[in-house]
Amino acid sequence: MAGTLKIEDLHVNVDDKEILKGVSLEIGSGQVHALMGPNGNGKSTLLQTIMGHPRYKVTKGTITLDGEDVLAMSVDERSKKGLFLGMQNPQEISGVTNSDFLKAALNSRRDKPISLFEFYKLMEGNIKKLKMKEDLAHRFVNDGFSGGEKKRNEILQMMILKPKIALLDEIDSGLDVDAIKLVADAINDIRSKGDLGLMIVSHYDRFFGIIKPTHAHVIVDGKIVVEGDNELVEKIDNDGYDWLYEELKIHPVTPLKPLVYSLGTCALNQRRAND
């Protein structure tokens, strides 16, 4: 399933504040795009907007998948057309088992429902590949999962749903060294067998070292300020972003820190201090 995702001059507001200020890029089948940049500058916003999160309002620009207007599609239609978002914080769905959830998701994009035998074969095979616990199918979706288990579960869903374009938002955070390699190898395995296009947000060179992006983009203050390939990924890993700020005379958005209030002074300590 080859697909081309094209984003042109995308402007996005969140709570009436403009976060993306004109992003354009194109992801073709078989390509791996690394999306980099300091925190709070628009990476996750871009991914969530492509998937259609209702909180993110597109004020200008277009997104198309194989020429079709993605912005006109509902979230589930986007998924059925071949988009997948591996989330930074996957939701827990208590009471719904992984197998019921995935079977329903898989059947939503098929004319004829998958047979139970075929489904369990597919699920068990992929669970083994990702070295997940055997009882996963019967556990509630992400309920009581560790951070690493949740991220692997996202990859499991991707392997089963077989999207055209997958967007992975810090899918490697929360994974230990061995699990990062396992997940990266699984992604490479999918790539080798098909035309999957990927856009990956990650802060870890180790992950990109195994995945080897074909393209790289750096977002600062809602704009792509520099593009390149794996060499750019390596340079940022070695030198950080300061050289970019200096060269381009730009400043990143600094995420707001939560306010800390004093609850007052401990009376006992105050008395001791006075003594």
């Binding site: 939701q91 769905i93 009471g95 939503s108 749903l161």
Partner: peptide, 27 residues
């Protein structure tokens, strides 16, 4: 029903109705 849970289910291809039924069934 949590809107974020609904969005998560939609993002896997389940329509709003299908998601709700799955959640109701879980109860």
């Amino acid at each position: 029903i949590d809107e974020d849970v609904l969005y998560y289910m939609n993002s896997r291809g389940l329509s709003k109705d299908a998601s709700l039924k799955l959640l109701i069934n879980s109860y």
